[in-house]
């Protein structure tokens, strides 16, 4: 463990916190920047035990592409769910589905689980790294394998590309 790993375990998180702090304060001055940077350095240090080992690559192009896909899916799926909620709720086939993971990185699995929850119609309940699967609940699932396929190709494959694993 180098000194840099010790003082700045997550430089990106440090910068994000500092930037967010400046953003939320009414004015950008020496004081707010200093406080933001202090928080940015302190928070990763105090929470370092909660962070799983993090992949080292990060492809920004692939990440932006995935973000667009997720935003698009959020909008489209919202309308689909709206139809379900306003329609005949007795006819929906909600079920639990286990999505097997190709990755054994807990960091990637956590992001995948969050994306699954953010896109309406699916909700992740549990990430099981021992069995390597995400346990999810689907609001209306006519076909299990179709849903699993969609999650794997639309979200997991890009995530693996982003973090190179």
């Amino acid at each position: 463990m180098t000194l840099r790993d010790w003082v700045l375990p997550q430089p990106f998180l440090t910068l994000s916190i500092a930037a967010l702090w400046a953003l939320l304060s009414a004015d950008v001055s020496g004081g707010t920047l200093l406080l933001g940077l202090t928080l940015g350095i302190a928070i990763p240090l105090f929470t370092s035990q909660f962070w799983p080992g993090r992949p080292h690559t990060f492809r920004i192009g692939a990440a932006l592409r995935l973000m667009l896909v997720v935003f698009y899916d959020i909008i489209v799926a919202n309308f689909a769910v709206a139809r379900i909620v306003l329609g005949n709720v007795d006819g929906i086939k909600s079920k639990f589905v286990d999505v097997p993971l190709d990755t054994n990185d807990p960091y990637v699995a956590t992001i995948l689980a969050s994306i699954i929850t953010l896109t309406p119609g699916t909700l992740s309940i549990d990430v099981d790294m021992d069995k390597r699967m995400v346990h999810i609940h689907g609001l209306d699932v006519p076909d299990r394998s179709l849903l699993i396929d969609e999650i794997k190709t639309r979200y997991e494959a890009p995530l693996k590309e982003i973090f190179g694993c």
Binding site: N78, V81, V85, I92, S94, F96, T117, L118, P120, G121, L123, I125, H137, L139
Partner: peptide, 9 residues
């Protein structure tokens, strides 16, 4: 479980 879908949306 189905109700949880509402608030996330």
């Amino acid at each position: 479980f189905t109700r949880l879908h509402g608030p996330t949306k």
